[in-house]
């Protein structure tokens, strides 16, 4: 491919521009413009209803002295380091089971795992509040049936984040769908060959499925991480960040600053810090997963 002639490359470039032109227009108008506005606001004190006042790096300085911000960063990091791997692990496992050709009725199961994503967020949040009740909630009653005295979940400083990890797992139907679609791409002949070599299900999974699922895993992990950074509706409705800010996540605090405290400039600075952190994480992931390898 590298030996293509220059003029071919030029036509391809022209074609490519045609193909991505709607996106280019969209990104300039609906994304670049707001992003650049927010970059400018991040150097300002901006209350939306008044004109922005330039304050230099003050917002960024304030951020790193703001205990709530650091707490939000910690909580978000907790979810990324603990919640994302657990969710990813569960989603991959479930998808591999669902993809097993020897099992029947997998269609019904797929729908079951997908149902949670169909429930409107407001309703889903109320359902979780109900399920996580310390005394009467179904989760603690289930645990009680096994002789385990369940924790206070969303009303406990220690258990509120694990409670949100449960919610995260519950809504991983999207990821399962994508994993399943990715699994479809893996040829049966590979498994048949491996089976002939005597590799069992577990071995096949480790040495065929997971490596070939790489680009799908990358996509899901990246969207999951971005999802955690933007996680807002659930903590907002269920806990509003409490108790003791133990569920104050990044986007929730950003939202509070933007729309409840009138600190659009400060919120914009938060957005840019988020952008830089998320970029760094994603670049590292791309390196680890050797993102560009597939192309060459």
């Amino acid at each position: 491919m590298k030996k293509r002639k220059m003029n071919l490359k030029r036509t391809e470039f022209k074609h490519a521009m045609l193909f991505i032109s709607p996106w280019i227009f969209g990104v300039i108008v609906f994304t670049l413009y707001p992003i650049l506005s927010s970059l400018y606001y991040s150097f300002c004190e901006y209350k939306v209803v008044q004109d922005p006042i330039f304050v230099g790096l003050q917002n960024y300085k304030d951020l790193f002295a703001d205990k709530t911000f650091l707490k939000a960063l910690y909580n978000t990091g907790y979810m990324i380091l603990i919640g994302v791997p657990i969710t990813t692990f569960t989603a991959i496992w479930v998808s591999i089971l669902l993809n097993n050709k020897k099992l029947k009725y997998t269609g019904v199961f797929r729908i079951m795992f997908f149902i949670p994503t169909l429930i409107p967020t407001v309703v889903a949040c109320l359902l979780w509040v109900w399920m996580l009740q310390p005394d009467s909630g179904i989760i603690n009653r289930l645990l009680g049936a096994f002789g385990i005295s369940g924790p206070g979940w969303i009303s406990s400083v220690t258990w509120s984040k694990p409670a949100f990890i449960l919610i995260m797992i519950w809504t991983c139907g999207n990821a399962i769908i994508i994993y399943l679609a990715g699994l479809q791409d893996i040829s049966d002949s590979l498994y048949e060959a491996a089976a002939l070599d005597g590799a069992g299900f577990f071995r096949q999974t480790i040495s065929i499925t997971i490596p070939l699922l790489k680009s799908t895993i990358l996509y899901n992990v990246v969207t999951l991480i971005i999802g955690v950074f933007q996680w807002f509706a659930e903590p907002y409705i269920i806990t509003s960040g409490g108790p003791d800010n133990s569920t104050m996540f990044y986007a929730l605090y950003l939202y509070q600053n933007a729309f409840q405290f009138f600190k659009m400039g400060y919120a914009s600075a938060m957005a840019w810090v988020l952008l830089i952190i998320a970029m760094a994480i994603i670049l590292v992931l791309f390196k680890v997963f050797k993102f560009n390898e597939v192309d060459s």
């Binding site: 990104v27 994304t31 413009y33 707001p34 992003i35 506005s37 927010s38 606001y41 939306v48 990246v222 969207t223 971005i226 950074f229 933007q230 807002f232 986007a251 950003l254 939202y255 933007a258 729309f259 659009m264 919120a267 914009s268 957005a271 988020l274 952008l275 998320a278 970029m279 994603i282």
Partner: peptide, 13 residues
Amino acid sequence: VTMILPYQVTLVP
């Protein structure tokens, strides 16, 4: 990059 930006900051612009 455009995936990452939270809607909260793009909302007002």
